[in-house]
Write a protein that binds this DNA or RNA. Structure first.
Lengths: 343, 343
DNA sequence: CTGAAAGCGCTTACAG
DNA sequence: CTGAAAGCGCTTACAG
């Protein structure tokens, strides 16, 4: 019952068991032989004292944190649940800890910014999309912090493994479907966040599809959606309230979450999906099949992306080189919001 | 360019700046006066060397981790996204780190189990539902680890703050609605996980409503749902395949996620919601209003629960005593799955 | 197989 | 205002 600290340390158990701390440490880590009798004494004392090793001391001595960091842009999208589930699964399987933080680097200047995650508290990081700028990523990389990027490609020449999803071809196919099968010609594109890669490639796919059919690109049909339900809702609402907005017959929502906002905005002005306007999304979130009408979208294996990313990070930590680029396949899922009948 | 470690330490900057490490430390923490000239030198050297303080060393010296732990049962339910968002918000606002882990204590014996989270790596823990047994909680509590329980009440006599949601009255009202307004009399209850409190109180509410109307409780109408979509689906499917299963006219899904599984199972055997069977849920997840038909349910302020819990934990860490019991109000949300018309 | 001792990178009385 | 030194709780050569 000492005054200074209520917690029992390795010294306490060593003293109590009549051995050196080195021996206790060895027993604990099973990394050097310890005789039977001593082992028993130590084990017993540890239980009596309910000893639990102080992780930070161990981390300091070993210069290894045994934890990986996950940097996200936010948590307000159902997209993140499966991503987290995938990551957490492999992290815990490896016996590691998972530190989760959100970070919007574009929001604040670089001066004196202390990042929530970095080499000071993790052995490696999973960096989602735009949670870090290219410059910040480069800085971490220069200091040799193991990283893998998720839904984000490193800057040219920077060799950081990344795992993402096929965006362009799938988007092109989706928009092509709208054009070819449903005769759409005035398709609104609800963009994702500025400078976001998924957003970028989905737009490229959209443009390619238009091009394929000789439909001119119309800037007035490009709206800001941010991959967020509320934002998409508000943007479309504003667009619709404009007395003479350009005509349109479909909207490519950017992602499923935005599609929901779009459904709402459309409904409020009495436009029916898909009769009056066709809507398609991206992600195939858990919700997509249950919307009214069920959402035609692109399936992205988000949980799998989480798992791959985590695996690759561990490969890095273990000294082997994972593939630099991992692009998971996506698949068009036809449901009814595009105008198709029940499948 | 030393061999041993690529990272620069406080000694390096002290040496380079021609001051003692104590001074660097003081400058860093701004907790003791440092003269202008030295401050400038130090600042400059820190930048030159790109110095970033080693968190673990600091944690060890201060005996404070500056991180809180969140223990979950799993991540495969959309319920967790808003919970995490609420928690992460206040944690990062406080400048703390968030360690996330999942844990199913009922699955393995207590022998030699090393918990992923505890006093060895956190300053305090947020414990969700049954991620820990009462006994395990008691053990952590005995060692004075600050904790707040989420959607879980401490064992009798154990004084640990908890934040949860009103389950019983809301469930009673919901079931009463089914009986009174829609004339249901054979209502299936899809239970949540075994021994789970939310599940327990929702059942109590269900029974109370039955009682209010003199409807006898029928064990054969109680099904296992686990608050999981797949489980609920399978259980109901099995039930329906039984050649002479008891008749029923409604199902109280336990939670919204289970409700989705129920929709599916019902649809597959050609039963329509709400015409043939009424369905109600609990949580009011983001998905609920978009289901077909829109789900009548109970709104639980999950993100707010996350915020409260985190706030209370910080109060504990700051030495003040938060309220022991925080029960957030819930509210019945009538939509169409119960048979009501568009509201 | 076991122990004494140095070291991991910080902080903070204590003395000046 | 500043520095020398002890301490936080571990691990691991080094010597036996």
């Amino acid at each position: 019952m000492t005054k200074r600290s209520s917690s029992v340390t390795i010294r306490d158990v060593a003293r109590q068991a009549g051995v050196s701390v080195a021996t206790v440490s060895r027993y604990l880590n099973q990394n050097a032989p310890v005789s039977e009798p001593l082992s028993e004494r130590i084990q017993q004392v540890m239980e009596e004292l309910a000893y639990v090793p102080e992780a930070t001391a161990r981390q300091l001595a070993l210069r290894k944190k045994h934890t990986i960091g996950l940097l996200l842009t936010n948590l307000h999208n159902d997209f993140f649940a499966p991503l987290l589930a995938g990551i957490e699964g492999v992290v815990s399987e490896k016996g590691y800890n998972l530190l989760v933080a959100t970070c919007r680097p574009h929001l604040y200047s670089d001066n004196g910014v202390q990042f929530p995650l970095g080499s000071h508290n993790t052995d490696g990081m999973l960096v989602f999309a735009d949670s870090l700028t290219d410059e910040q990523i480069a800085r971490f990389h220069a200091r040799r912090l193991p990283m893998v990027l998720i839904h984000k490609t490193p800057a040219p020449g920077v060799q950081i493994p990344f795992v993402t999803v096929e965006n362009k071809a799938a988007s092109r196919k989706l928009v092509d479907h709208l054009i070819t099968v449903h005769g759409c010609g005035r398709i609104i594109l609800m963009r994702g966040p500025e400078h976001q890669e998924d957003s970028y490639w989905r737009e490229i796919g959209y443009r390619a599809a238009l091009d394929d059919h000789g439909i001119p690109f119309d800037e007035s049909l490009i709206l800001r959606g941010a991959f967020e339900r509320e934002v998409a809702y508000n943007t479309l609402k504003t667009f619709l309230q404009e007395p003479n907005h350009p005509p349109f017959d479909a909207v490519f929502a950017g992602d499923d979450d935005a599609a929901i906002g779009i459904y709402d905005a459309l409904r409020e002005v009495g436009l029916r999906v898909p009769e009056d306007v066709r809507v398609v999304g991206f992600d195939d979130s858990r919700m997509a099949p249950f919307l009214t009408p069920p959402l035609t979208t692109v399936r992205a294996p988000t949980e799998q992306v989480g798992r791959s990313a985590a695996h690759h990070l561990f490969q890095l930590l273990e000294g082997s080189l994972p593939e630099l680029a991992t692009v998971h396949a996506t698949e068009m899922i036809i449901r009814q919001s595009c105008g198709c009948q029940d499948v």
